[in-house]
């Protein structure tokens, strides 16, 4: 399952018919595999857009990718522990190509998380904290994103609905590129240089999510 061939379409007929699709198959997309989360859905969502993605925990393969996706669901401190064991905690902050952290992936890109009191990768200068008990925790379902900045949201309308499931959130800060509201306004997405993060699951957010994933894959 880990070593799938990136470019399965190599028949001549397919090339003629599907030139655009072939271009897409040339894009090297790596999903970082550190044993956290529902990675299959992300793979499928990327495939629905006509691309292929490989799962990898190999430093060289991740470094050589055109786009890197950093997934994660589960608990923050144990996920950080897994990253440390494999040395990926050092690798991720040094990547130069566009990197997209999803859900817990985004949270781990922050300074720290209150969940299991763990340090994060320190890419975004924010501390992840738990929602107050004035609202049901976890937040599960579809909420809206607004104050959209960055090419990640090209052709995405203000107040579009996205799917989230989380108990902890990153507050608003200078790297916030989308805001959502649950108990209070918080960061639904972050960006700093080549690093992007979404608290929501673009792979599960219908057509809007597919647009956002496509925008990420279109980044130079």
């Amino acid at each position: 399952m880990r070593c799938e061939i990136i470019n399965p379409i190599c028949e001549i007929g397919a090339i003629r018919v599907n030139a655009k699709k072939l271009e897409r198959h040339k894009v090297k997309i790596v999903i970082i595999d550190y044993g956290a989360g529902n990675i299959q859905s992300i793979k499928f969502a990327i495939r629905r857009l006509g691309y292929d993605a490989v799962l990898s925990d190999k430093v060289e393969e991740i470094q050589n990718a055109d786009k890197v996706i950093f997934p994660g669901v589960g608990e923050a401190s144990s996920a950080m522990q897994k990253l440390r064991v494999s040395g990926l905690d050092k690798l991720v902050p040094e990547l130069r190509q566009p990197v997209l952290g999803i859900c817990l992936g985004m949270q781990l890109m922050c300074n720290s998380s209150e969940e299991g009191n763990t340090d994060g990768l320190g890419i975004f200068d924010l501390d992840v904290v738990r929602f107050p008990n004035t609202v049901k925790v976890p937040q599960i379902g579809w909420n809206q994103i607004e104050d959209l900045k960055s090419d990640l949201f090209k052709e995405v309308q203000d107040k579009s609905y996205i799917y989230l499931v989380h108990s902890f959130y990153a507050p608003k800060g200078e790297n916030t590129i989308a805001v959502s509201e649950y108990a209070l306004p918080y960061s639904a997405a972050l960006q700093k240089n080549n690093f992007y993060g979404t608290q929501f699951h673009p792979e599960k957010s219908g057509m809007v999510g597919e647009r956002i994933l496509q925008n990420f894959l279109d980044l130079a």
Binding site: Q40, S41, F44, A45, R47, R48, Y163, V165, H201, E203, K204, S205, G206, M207, G209, E210
Partner: peptide
């Protein structure tokens, strides 16, 4: 589950 996840873009 595999075939649903392949096709469906909601949770």
């Amino acid at each position: 589950v595999y075939h649903v996840a392949e096709k469906v873009n909601i949770p």
